[in-house]
Design a protein around this nucleic acid. Structure first.
Lengths: 197, 197
DNA sequence: AAAATAAGTAAATATTACTTACCTAATAGC
DNA sequence: GCTATTAGGTAAGTAATATTTACTTATTTT
């Protein structure tokens, strides 16, 4: 049975909400089960009714965020033609997400990749799904002659997301605001044209 | 007094060595103090004589790795003229490091950035030092007309390291071998020329 | 050689993730 | 409409493990 957040029991919603709140300005490692329970207003035991362990809560929160993100990306891409135009929009949308959803950025960029379990989570399945979409667009661009045909698509994807992530990470660490429009423009220009004069 | 690894007490060396060994195929989170002590052949108490806490051992190991890396980079750059040639060599050297020093890659790409303490560590000071070198080379390239003058240097740096890291991360996760030469060639080409046809 | 400091140990304590046994309210089946 | 079953929830434990403390032994310094 698909579990929609709408019909999730109130306790589960409160637990996930508490994790989100606490991640706003704390690292995952520093957040204790006792704190989560207190913030959620439930007992510690209940947490283990809904989640396998502490990390499972994190994966759950990421999954929900990523679902929203994919819905938004899908919408953002509608009506856009051309692989480069689509990539440009994806760059913009991704930066916008990181800039306006610090918790999402924190989790995916810093907190999950260091555990084996993540790669078997539902959240990671969504990441792979997004990846396939990107690779599809890149291949479309190569086939259509918009994108160079002597670069492996996976590297192009790595360049796009590596650059975005590195650019957003520092901002997140030091709580600096990110101008989505400016950042997206610079990164798109850099990746499309290269750095060489 | 500067503490050289040469004159570190044997216990401290064994502890750092144990951490390195265990990180070879385990995540930091999963490594316990008891295990470190057992692997090192010392008692748990001794660990707290030399290190503030568990994470401090990690920072210490990273610092030692990074020191080696900086020495190597310095050597690698000798005799190379031109900003782009230097950047190309730095790309190659960085990939080579990640490819051949999995523990180093693990620590810096996955294990430290999620804790506040890292940004006050000696290891991070070395990272900042390396960053200044890179920005210097980029500025040199802009001044000399080799590199476009309408891209902020920090973004160029982000693109270089973001792309390298993303390209090496997956390989590390899934234990795939990395061909330094091929990877460096592709990334350099991609970043220098851009992805647009 | 005495004093001081560094290296190292063993056992206690403190923290915190996770379990167990239980209660209560809702709900499905007859 | 009564009963069995399950879902939501609690409180008090247990177990794992990071960190401290008080102490012993070796090494240096004067």
């Amino acid at each position: 049975m698909e579990e929609k957040s709408a019909n999730s029991p109130p306790g589960k919603l409160k637990i996930a909400g508490a994790m989100r709140t606490l991640l706003e300005d704390r690292t995952f490692e520093s957040i204790t089960i006792a704190e989560i329970a207190a913030t959620a207003g439930v007992t510690e035991g209940l947490i283990y009714k809904y989640f396998k362990d502490r990390r499972d809560i994190l994966h759950h929160v990421l999954k929900e965020h990523y679902q929203q993100f994919l819905v938004q990306i899908d919408r953002d891409l509608q009506g856009i033609d051309g692989a480069l135009n689509k990539l440009q929009k994806i760059i913009w949308s991704s930066i916008e997400r990181y800039a306006n959803h610090r918790v999402f950025a924190r989790i995916i960029l810093l907190e999950v990749r260091n555990s084996e379990g993540y790669f078997h989570s539902e959240a990671y399945a969504l990441v792979k799904q997004f990846n396939r979409i990107i690779i599809g667009i890149i291949n479309e661009g190569i086939a259509g002659g918009e994108i160079r045909d002597n670069l492996p698509p996976a590297y192009i994807r790595n360049a796009i997301f590596g650059t975005i992530e590195h650019s957003c990470l520092n901002r997140i660490f030091f709580n600096e605001p990110v101008s989505t429009a400016d950042t997206a423009k610079i990164i798109t220009d850099l990746l499309f044209q290269g750095i060489k004069r």
